[in-house]
């Protein structure tokens, strides 16, 4: 598995190919449905976002609460498609990577290609495993949203798969085709 240090550079982004299994390390931000709605409303009003979006990576996650002494609770990805409405404008503002699971819309794929971004997949339903990669966790904004608050995490060797690369290639199409071809 390829090791990747954040922030993402043009070189790294272009070297990543769909289906690559990677171990990601560095700072990422968490946000899901309600947080995305707020960020996009802020942008529409011409307000600033509560974090530096340039070259950032957003993880679509709403973790379980951390127990005393724990950094984070269970923290697997949520279905990315619900953020499709908001993702293109965030990419336009500098977002470089997204971590989630599931299909993306044509508009999102188009934006991924246009702004040279990457869509990574974390294993859906593997929240206990993924929580072990989180080494720090701080609240950034939207605390009132509870599990949906905007948080900054430091992750170490987070196991991910490139779902859609910056050229628009998609493992959901290619992986399935390759598997079916290997069967014939």
């Amino acid at each position: 598995m390829k090791k990747i240090m954040l922030p993402l550079t043009d070189e790294t982004v272009c070297s990543l190919k769909t289906g690559d299994r990677v171990l990601l390390s560095g700072y990422i931000y968490t946000s899901r449905d309600a947080g995305h709605k707020r960020m996009c409303e802020a942008l529409e009003k011409g307000e600033k976002l509560p974090f530096e979006i340039e070259n950032s990576v957003i993880y679509y996650v709403g973790p379980t609460p951390a127990k005393d002494g724990q950094i984070i609770g269970s923290a697997g990805p949520t279905t990315s498609g619900r953020m499709d409405k908001y993702a293109p404008v965030l990419m336009q503002k500098g977002l470089r990577g997204m971590i989630g699971k599931g299909e993306r819309s044509d508009q999102v794929v188009k934006a991924i290609k246009e702004y040279k971004c990457v869509y990574f997949g974390a294993i859906g339903g593997a929240g206990a495993l993924l929580s072990q990669c989180v080494k720090s966790n701080e609240s950034v904004a939207y605390e009132d949203l509870g599990a949906e608050a905007l948080r900054k995490l430091y992750v170490e060797d987070m196991p991910l798969t490139v779902i859609i690369d910056s050229f628009g290639n998609n493992i959901y199409e290619i992986g399935r085709e390759n598997y079916l071809k290997s069967k014939t």
Binding site: I123, A126, A128
Partner: peptide
């Protein structure tokens, strides 16, 4: 890739039991 993913999924339910962390964050 499927085989590796299933390995991680198995590891996940073991960690959940051992470390008492919910198997999935969507409880």
């Amino acid at each position: 890739i499927g085989k590796e993913i299933l390995g991680d999924i198995i590891e996940n339910f073991k960690i959940a039991e051992k470390s008492q962390i919910p198997i999935c964050q969507d409880t």
